[in-house]
């Protein structure tokens, strides 16, 4: 777990769907490097056989009756859509 390279930062930015300039990649590489350096201290702890906690309470599969309820109003849902046509959300081309 060494410092992050600018190439690694660019790869992570791509995975996170963030456009990034070379200058930003350098800045974030340094800042993220400091944070991951700090996180190294977790390795001081022996966590062999320690169960990970993703959630403080052991909740699994909270179910409700399979009965149709009222959904959100379609016209309301379209209120915040920037570009639309014939009641559908418009996006740029997906295939070149």
């Amino acid at each position: 777990m060494a410092k992050l390279s600018t190439e690694e930062v660019k790869h992570v930015a791509h995975l996170a769907r963030l456009a990034i300039t070379d200058a930003e990649a350098e800045k974030f590489a340094e800042q993220l490097g400091k944070i991951t350096d700090f996180a190294e201290q977790l390795n001081e702890l022996d966590t062999t056989n320690v169960e990970p906690t993703s959630h403080v309470f052991p909740i699994v599969n909270v179910m409700r009756e399979d009965v149709a309820g009222e959904g959100l109003d379609r016209e309301k849902m379209m209120l915040n859509v920037k570009e639309q046509e014939a009641g559908q959300v418009k996006v740029p081309s997906i295939l070149e």
Binding site: A39, L42, L45, T47, E51, T53, S54
Partner: peptide, 10 residues
């Protein structure tokens, strides 16, 4: 690792 440490803190 962080999730395991969370267990220790809890």
């Amino acid at each position: 690792k962080a999730q395991q440490v969370r267990t220790l803190i809890k």
